[in-house]
């Protein structure tokens, strides 16, 4: 069980949205983690500077929150290591061919009412729900 946190989740969501709006206003870019990461893998894209800075800020954030508020960020991973590796590889291949993930399609794309992003988001939400159903209720796993 994890606690239902509608307020914290909503507030966090508005900050994700704020970041998406600011990145478009200043850099003219979609705040999609897939696109930002892909440009940093070799062959590295010429505009790697802002990408690396965005990632550095994102990685520093949980530490900053913990230092400022004094409360640790909730974290729990029930997933065994071999499955983390399998899941990571699958996610990497999927987001590359699908041209985006939750941030790029699910937030930025849907906010622009892009038909591609709406289709992508419905698809990955559906397969994620189906996968968790199979792992937990068919196979009895994590």
């Amino acid at each position: 069980m994890t606690a239902f946190t509608p307020l914290a989740s909503f507030v966090g969501g508005t900050m994700i949205g704020l970041a998406a709006v600011l990145l478009m206003a200043f850099h003219g870019r979609i705040a999609g983690m897939t696109g930002i990461i892909t440009g940093l893998l070799p062959p590295v894209s010429a505009d790697w500077g802002w990408r690396a800075a965005f990632l550095a800020g994102a990685v520093a954030a949980p530490l900053a929150v913990t230092l400022l508020t004094g409360t640790p960020i909730g974290f729990e991973s029930p997933v065994p290591t071999p499955w983390l590796i399998v899941g990571g590889l699958i996610v990497g291949v999927g987001v590359y061919f699908g041209s985006g993930c939750t941030s790029g399609h699910g937030v930025c794309g849907i906010a622009r009412l892009s038909p591609r992003s709406i289709a992508a988001t419905l698809t990955f939400m559906a397969t994620a729900i189906a996968t968790v159903f199979v792992i937990r209720h068919v196979l009895g796993g994590f």
Binding site: M33, S77, L89, S103, F124
Partner: peptide, 20 residues
């Protein structure tokens, strides 16, 4: 788009992590 997104969802459902 659809195949890649379907695959991404499977990985997300396994690991509980998305890139963001």
């Amino acid at each position: 788009l659809i195949g890649g997104s379907a695959v991404f969802g499977i990985g997300w459902g396994i690991a509980g992590f998305c890139p963001g």
